[in-house]
Amino acid sequence: MTEIEPFPVSIPEHDLADLRARLDHVRLPEAETVPDGTQGIGLARLQNLLAAWRQHDWRSLEQRWNAIPHYRTRLDGLDIAFWHVRSPEPDAFPLVLTHGWPGSVLEFESVIGPLTDPVAHGGSAADAFDVVVPALPGFGFSERPAEVGWTPGRTAQAWADLMTRLGYERFGAHGGDWGAFVSTELARLAPERVAALHLTMPIASPLPEDVATADAAEQAMIAKRDMFMMTGPTHVIVQGMLPQTLGYSLLDSPAGLAAWLSEALVAFSDTRPEAGGGVSVAQQVDDIALYWFTGTGASAARWYWEAVRWTPRSAEAQNAQAVTVPTAFTLFPGEPFPVAKRWAERRYQNLISWNEMTYGGHYAGWEQPGLLVSELRNAFRQARIR
Rank of each mutant, 00 (worst) to 15 (best):
E3S: 15
E5S: 14
F7K: 15
S10A: 15
P12E: 04
L16S: 05
L19W: 05
L19S: 09
A21I: 06
D24A: 15
T33P: 01
P35K: 09
N48G: 15
N48S: 14
N48M: 11
L50M: 08
H56M: 09
D57C: 06
R59P: 01
R59I: 04
L61I: 05
A67C: 03
P69R: 08
P69N: 08
P69E: 10
R72I: 14
R74L: 06
L78S: 11
D79E: 14
A81N: 14
V85M: 06
D91M: 07
D91L: 10
L95M: 07
T98C: 13
G103C: 09
S104C: 11
E107V: 10
E109F: 05
S110Y: 00
S110F: 00
I112N: 01
G113Q: 06
G122Q: 06
G122M: 03
A126W: 01
A128S: 11
L136C: 12
F139L: 08
S142M: 10
E143Y: 09
P145Q: 14
P145F: 15
R154S: 12
W159Q: 13
L162C: 10
L162P: 05
T164N: 14
Y168Q: 02
G172H: 11
W178D: 01
G179L: 04
E192M: 02
R193L: 08
A195P: 12
P202L: 11
A204G: 01
D210P: 05
V211S: 01
E218W: 01
E218Y: 02
Q219V: 00
Q219A: 07
Q219Y: 01
I222C: 07
A223M: 04
D226P: 00
T231V: 12
P233S: 08
I237D: 09
M241R: 13
L242G: 00
L242N: 12
L246P: 13
G247W: 01
S249C: 07
S249K: 07
A258R: 09
A259V: 07
L261H: 02
L265C: 09
F268M: 12
S269M: 08
G277L: 05
G277P: 02
G278W: 04
A282K: 06
G295E: 07
A301W: 03
P312Q: 07
S314V: 04
E316Q: 14
A322H: 09
F329H: 04
L331R: 03
N350S: 15
M357N: 06
G360L: 08
G365R: 03
G370F: 00
L372E: 02
V373K: 01
S374Y: 00
S374V: 02
A379R: 04
R384F: 03
